[in-house]
Design a binder for these strands. Structure first.
Lengths: 154, 154
DNA sequence: TTTTTTGCAAAACCTTTGCAGTTGG
DNA sequence: CCAACTGCAAAGGTTTTGCAAAAAA
């Protein structure tokens, strides 16, 4: 699991598109690899390797966690998958298409919100203008105090 | 090591101020604890627990890493210290006063820049306006592509 | 003296690696 | 067929915990 994106994101909607991309890059489409993809295609949130290995809440059959890690690495290199750190604890994986969704995390209550996309674009634009960086919040989300915690009496 | 700040940052400039704060909070000022503080007071960048335990490059005497972790935890609870994740690898610790310095990390070349403070204020203001969060980039820095990598021919 | 802190050992947690056997193309 | 992949075991890197001994106040 590296910090930087291993390659350009490749957006897929289903297993067939994912399988085609894998084969185009010289990778095989094994049962354990399909299983990881099935879990991520069905998940509505980033999953840890352990969650996938345990079957993603009944979504898929349980499998070996080493294999899950190795497949996540391959899928990340291909650009089909990326991972995000929402706090401490294990990294969480999602399809590259889901990267367009940015998270914003409250460090008081732990809430994980999906950030408004236009607002995030404005933030990225401002960072580019003022700091010169093409910012991505896909690996580390924005962390702060959410409105509820900010207004709560402490 | 938790995600959220354990308490309000307490700014100190030297060992005496740190010691006073510790005693005011009912903590003792032991030799190993002083050693961690000495390393952080002298460091010009966030240090890992291992770096501190190894003597921070000759700055202080080597010490036991368990003790370093426990002291960093105490110092973080008191608000004298906080930690930042600059990428994968160990967390890095710094005095709370150093939190005013925000980092911005390039995920291509690994460069760690100190971000312009006014620009970061503008970013925090925009996040507050558009997303409602009081953003902090002290735990997770902004990650992106630096100007040099962006203009580099790939 | 009393309560906190230390130092060592051991474990916990997340992730990677080695390798012999299996499988996809 | 054979390179890619799997599953198990083992190890690696970072951090936490247990506990008896030491030290701060």
């Amino acid at each position: 699991m590296t910090t930087s994106p291993d390659s350009t994101p490749v957006l897929v909607r289903n297993m067939d598109e994912a399988a085609a991309e894998l084969r185009a890059r010289g990778h095989r489409v094994s049962a354990p690899r399909r299983l990881v993809l099935t879990a991520l295609l069905a998940a509505h949130r980033p999953l840890s390797a352990e969650e996938i290995a345990e079957g993603a809440g009944g979504l898929v059959a349980p499998s070996d966690i080493t294999s899950v890690y190795r497949n996540l690495e391959t899928l990340e290199q291909v650009g089909l998958v990326s991972h995000v750190h929402l706090g401490h604890g294990p990294g969480r994986y999602r399809l590259a298409g889901d990267e367009r969704r940015d998270y914003i995390v409250c460090d008081r209550c732990g809430r994980v919100d999906v950030a408004d996309a236009e607002a995030m674009d404005a933030v990225r634009t401002l960072v580019a203008e003022r700091l010169g960086y093409e910012a991505r919040f896909t690996h580390f989300p924005i962390v702060g105090v959410c409105p509820r915690c900010a207004s709560a009496v402490v």
